[in-house]
């Protein structure tokens, strides 16, 4: 490879810096660490972790959620979850989301971010596309809309009789009259996935643009001088340099895909879509908690959800490490 190996250079420098700092525990350093870690952690532990830990205890009970009484039932709730065919169905739907949503969103937003930042002239300094800020600003718009509103809006767009989609398809001469996009098992999931991606791409596009702008210009210059084309530059400079951002995005999207509550609940109010084809775990959890009054069971589902998410994150970190990510995963 004729390109300078960027990560290696930076890693070396960073490790050296860290090494040298570790040696002397000055007052400056101790006070710094205490304040910088102590305050955020204290708030976090009291208002997030502690309530979650209490909630975890509920998962071992038969608590209804409303009454002041409950009994401990050990791991019964966990055992029962895996005999609940609806929960298992929801789990498999979440797995589909988990595979598709992060992949498509990350790839699409990476492509768009690359077009915006390095789509300009191939000569001289790396330049963004002319007037590209318009695209960046516009793409972000969906993220500003509350998910509930997005659900209502797209519900109308997919409407069989008066919706934008069927209207457009019919205008093109295709006969889609009365086709219920959200009412058929073979389209409901994919239509929902599209809505989710629509809502998220702008977010990650902006994030990746920020990441790409943080890359020292010299790396691009060097690649140029070495005669690397645009595609090559993107693959060998951009992606490795914003690797941690991509990993973060992937994990966060995965967390979202394992939840997906607001989108699914607003696209399919009160139900799990046609033949439960869009039912997700968090919906099942919500129904169990509030309609069935089995809060203990619902909390156990929440714990499973959290474990699944952590497992997924661990997997992403592992993959990043195996493919040569900087400093490997943090897990």
């Amino acid at each position: 490879m004729s390109l300078p190996p960027p990560t290696a250079v930076l890693e070396g420098g960073r490790k050296a810096a860290i090494q040298s700092r570790r040696k002397n525990l000055t007052f400056d350093k101790v006070s710094f660490m205490a304040v910088f870690l102590g305050i955020p952690l204290a708030i976090y532990l009291v208002f997030v972790i502690w309530p979650f830990l209490q909630a975890f205890v509920y998962s071992l009970t038969d608590w209804s959620g409303f009454s002041p009484n409950y009994k401990f039932v050990g791991l019964d709730n966990y055992a029962r979850i895996f005999t609940d065919d609806q929960f298992l169905k929801a789990l498999s739907n979440n797995v589909i989301l988990l595979i598709v949503v992060p992949l498509v969103t990350v790839v699409l937003s990476l492509v768009l971010a690359t077009l915006v930042t390095v789509g300009g002239s191939s000569k001289g300094q790396v330049k963004g596309l002319r007037n590209s800020s318009f695209y960046r600003v516009v793409s972000f718009f969906p993220y500003t809309i509350p998910a509930v509103a997005i659900g209502i809006m797209w519900g109308q767009i997919y409407d069989p009789s008066g919706g934008l989609l069927n209207g457009a398809l019919n205008a093109l001469g295709l006969n889609f009259k009365d086709y219920a996009w959200l009412g058929n098992t073979n389209t409901a999931m994919w239509c929902s996935i599209f809505v989710i991606i629509w809502g998220f791409v702008g977010f990650y596009m902006v994030l990746f643009i920020a990441g790409i702008k943080g890359i020292p210009a010299e790396l691009f210059e060097a690649a140029r001088i070495d005669g690397a084309g645009r595609f090559r530059t993107a693959v060998s400079v951009t992606i490795p340099m914003i690797r941690d951002n991509i990993q973060t995005a992937y994990v966060y999207l995965g967390i979202f895909a394992l939840d997906a509550f607001v989108y699914m609940a607003s696209l399919f109010p009160n139900a799990g879509g046609p033949e439960n084809s869009t039912l997700v775990m968090s919906q099942q959890l919500f129904f169990t908690a509030f309609q069935r009054g089995q809060f203990g069971m619902a909390t156990a589902m929440g714990v499973i959800l959290a474990l699944a998410t952590l497992l997924f994150s661990g997997l992403v970190f592992l993959v990043n490490k195996l493919t040569g990510g900087s400093e490997g995963g943090r897990l």
């Binding site: 870690l37 952690l41 972790i49 502690w50 979650f52 909630a55 994990v251 968090s282 998410t309 943090r330």
Partner: peptide, 30 residues
């Protein structure tokens, strides 16, 4: 991100864990 010390990973994982649990389950204790 910039210091390695004992327990840093645990803190990071703890942060990650906070993102994974449905909020409304924690509302009663909160």
């Amino acid at each position: 991100a910039r210091f390695t010390f004992r327990g840093s990973r645990i803190i990071y994982v703890l942060m990650l864990a906070g993102l994974t649990f449905p909020i409304f389950l924690a509302m009663v204790p909160l």
